[in-house]
Design a protein around this nucleic acid. Structure first.
Lengths: 135, 135
DNA sequence: ATATTTGTAATATATTTTATTACAGTATGA
DNA sequence: TCATACTGTAATAAAATATATTACAAATAT
């Protein structure tokens, strides 16, 4: 389910921020991201589910922001598009008969949870407006 | 390549920490991680390259730590096994003719760099010994 | 010598991500 | 009211990445 989700979503939102009064079509957005319009619409579906944007079907349809870019933090976008940041897990279940194998995933999860807290804290201090102003 | 690199490597190192005086075989380690021994040896090759472990070929061979677990920080392991943490990039090059497409990757990189600094800071405060003591 | 182990390359399989196709449904405006 | 331009979504295909396996040379303990 799309590993560039965050990047694509923030790209979409930056475009919407630059044209706050227009409904941008998925094809227009896809042209900027360089991605298939269907995938853009999938990410937009996610944004809609989270009440960040609204979209209008039919001719001259498209998508626009539902709220001000200054009211959307990057942490919100992060949480919408990422379960959690991890440094990964081994694919197979480690050996539960080994004291290390038995606990490794729990201990890694704890570590990763701390990392996520730090990232969230950092991202909640940046708004979509801040990010968009860099362009 | 290998997305569970960090997890696998820290698992290996935790085992080595628990048996600091023995050469552990890749097969023994693979049995705990539940991974093919060849992949374990690949990660060990990386650890050797970084002078964290030494290994001995031949019968009764295997791998052991080269330094004390208290002298190895999780940040060192992180840097050995991860380029950088990112929240991802869109796979294709964004449209350079669009002001947003032109700069999005640079701006994301800057953001991710800050995230990595925070993670590094956090991980450098945890040693392999600290981590291993949880088991 | 033989058995056991590392080191590494080559290849195969599995998994995940991205792309495409297809088409029903909806709004616009000529 | 009909043609057009959109969204929404499912199904499928292709590409990329990660993991697994096989194979075998080289090293070393006993």
């Amino acid at each position: 389910m799309i590993s560039g989700k965050f990047a694509i979503t923030i790209h979409i939102l930056t475009l919407l921020t630059k044209f706050p009064d227009e409904f941008l079509s998925s094809e227009f957005i896809a042209g900027s991201v360089n991605l298939h319009p269907v995938l853009v619409r999938k990410e937009i579906a996610n944004l809609k589910k989270n009440n960040i944007v609204e979209s209008k079907e039919g001719k001259n349809g498209g998508t626009k922001l539902l709220k001000s870019a200054s009211d959307i933090s990057l942490d919100t976008i992060f949480k919408m598009t990422f379960d959690t940041v991890t440094l990964g897990f081994s694919k197979n279940e480690p050996n539960p008969k080994c004291p290390v194998g038995k606990k490794i995933n729990k201990n890694l999860e704890d570590l990763y949870e701390n990392i996520n807290e730090k990232i969230s804290l950092q991202l909640s201090g940046i708004t979509l407006e801040n990010f968009s102003n860099q362009f």
